[in-house]
Amino acid sequence: MNDKKKNLDNREVFIKGLSDNIVKSAVDIVKIDPTKKQITEITDTVTERLQYESSSLLNEAVTKLHPDSLSEMLPEEKVERNFERFGKNFRYQHMLMFVSVIILIITGMPLKFPEFGLSKFIVIDLLGGLHNSTFIHRIGAVGLIIVGIWHVIYSLGSRVGRRDFFLMVPNLKDAADFMGTMRYYIGKSKSGPKFDRFSFIEKFDYWAVYWGMVIMIGSGAIMWYKELFPKYFYDIGREMHSDEGLLATLSIVIWHFYNVHFNPEVFPMSWTWWHGQLTESEMKHHHPLEYEAIIKKESQDIIDQSKSESKGNN
């Protein structure tokens, strides 16, 4: 135990020294006189990176020595860093959306299945009759419409929103990834495909919601203002609203709940919707391409920053 601790301490001291050395060399190369703040910032980044690399090299070394007992023999030290997956704006969109959708499902499903006792209990006993339940359904509808408009503005107007929207567009890699996942599932390959910021599964989820929003809001609006249209508009709207409502509900309960609740990896719930964060290992596991890009960009930024600052100083 003491030996382990000693080794860890030694390594930390060594890493500290190494990062100081690296920064000093960098300063020598660019031949400028950096501020103290700059030095600490850059040193911290380098230290963090070295700590991470040293621990992953340690893992590798352990695996090579003793392939079976990786998880047990790993030292407890872990330098985990969090990555922001969803910004505040996006998380608020999701919160308003799920509150609205829960309201809509609770007040909508009983009208699709009126013969069930539970439906009658919800509408008659819990909500006090059809008049109240349809009113509450409309409150949920307003919530969903606000989310829809908000998201379109976010996707067009904000930098992150625009970037994410374009990353959501399906491409050939998604088809390849799907095949790769299938091969992984049936055991033809040892590991699944490497995903970027949005995997084909997440793209499917996103566009499924997009389709659902268009159908539900469109048909719902026709039913809300039915008197303005010929009756067959209402009949078509009602049929679509009813069918798509069931499809959406089942998709959410089966597919979305599996991914974010019942999946053994996240059970009972992934908290990303609340804090927006993914841990480093989650990032490396689920979004390796995005992770690599982030790390690469960060290193590049450090170099660029010091370069531009040296220019400014000259």
Binding site: P110, L111, P114, E115, S119, K120, V123, I124, G129, L130, H131, S133, R238
Partner: peptide, 13 residues
């Protein structure tokens, strides 16, 4: 919708 409303005890449908 009229029929569903009736099953839900509405007196106005």
């Amino acid at each position: 919708f009229h029929g569903v409303g009736l099953q839900m005890g509405s007196k106005t449908v």
